[in-house]
């Protein structure tokens, strides 16, 4: 059975991660792999966080840095000042034998060291290629992912993403790993998921859009608006709170739908998109309510 991370209870674009999040990501190609890691690392550098990068041990450091620079400014300066650290997982337990406890203690040391140095928060990107590279037991790894690491995240000083190669882990392992993380990530920039709202309430048709609504995702976006137009319920809810980008075309298309549909329409979104809707004339549509921050 193909693996579907989008069935996860909380799926978000990588830029929506918050301190304290522990997120699962999977990739099937190099672009998807590095877009997640690159964007996550660059955002951490921008925000002044300590960034720990456990890349695939088989990839040379110079190549890793090149990939990071495809998603933001040069990383030489943050590397030089120690804000960005390239690590391999075996450093967490060496010179002793591999164990989950030693791995966890090593990560904990890295976090404490960073906080001691004055960094407000720490983020790790862990490419799970380390599991095969260092001969770790996958059952132990899954236990660590789902149950053995929660204490790292409780004080919101630490964020972690674990990226799994879909060609190297079985569907069963991927499913259990995804389920073990409180959060899952979209595959990369230029993704739009259209999901039904689980409990929209009686008489309400609801859709939730996750990802980006722009030129590259026109088709699923227009399809979502078509589904709304074809629904029969007297009230419509469009949840855009996990939409990280909304271009002018899509914002205008939502307003046109609301203006022409005639039913009560509620848009839930954050302040950025609310501002766009107001600028484009949301207040002129009496049956529309924009619930923004």
């Amino acid at each position: 059975m193909p693996f579907h991370a989008e069935e996860h209870t909380r799926i978000v674009p990588v830029e929506r991660l918050r301190p304290g999040d522990h997120a699962f990501a999977s990739y099937a190609d190099e672009e998807s792999r590095w877009s997640t890691i690159g964007s996550f690392a660059q955002t951490g550098i921008t925000r002044g966080e300590r960034v720990l990068l456990f890349a695939d041990p088989a990839v040379p450091a110079a190549t890793v840095l090149e990939h990071l620079e495809a998603y933001g400014p040069p990383v030489g300066p943050p590397l030089k000042r120690g804000q960005l650290k390239l690590l391999t997982m075996d450093r967490m337990w060496r010179p002793r034998e591999i164990s989950v406890e030693r791995q966890m203690a090593g990560l904990r040391r890295e976090v404490e060291e960073a906080l001691h140095e004055g960094y407000p928060t720490v983020r790790s990107a862990i490419d799970m290629a380390w599991v095969a590279a260092f001969g770790a037991d996958v059952e132990q790894v899954l236990w660590r992912e789902s149950k053995g690491c929660h204490y790292l995240f409780t004080d919101a000083h630490y964020t972690e993403i674990c990226t799994y190669d879909e060609t190297r882990f079985s569907g069963d392992v991927l499913d259990r790993a995804a389920a073990g993380h409180p959060t899952a990530l979209l595959k990369g920039p230029g993704t739009l998921l259209v999901l039904p709202i689980a409990e929209p309430g009686s008489g309400t048709y609801g859709l939730r859009l996750v990802g980006e609504a722009d030129l590259s995702t026109r088709e699923p976006f227009n399809d979502a608006l078509r589904r709304i137009a074809e629904s029969q319920e007297p009230r419509v809810v469009l949840d855009l709170t996990e939409l990280s980008f909304l271009d002018v075309y899509c914002a205008r298309a939502v307003l046109r739908m609301a203006a022409e549909d005639g039913r009560r329409v509620v848009i839930r979104c954050d302040g950025i998109h609310a501002h766009t809707f107001l600028l484009l004339g949301a207040l002129d549509i009496p049956q529309l309510t924009v619930e923004g921050e």
């Binding site: 830029e15 877009s35 690159g38 964007s39 660059q42 955002t43 550098i45 921008t46 495809a70 998603y71 933001g72 400014p73 990369g188 920039p189 230029g190 980006e212 722009d214 030129l215 590259s216 980008f245």
Partner: peptide, 12 residues
């Protein structure tokens, strides 16, 4: 390139 371009632009 549009989605990746926005990531890069945002960081710069």
């Amino acid at each position: 390139d549009l989605p990746r371009l926005r990531v890069v632009l945002g960081e710069y």
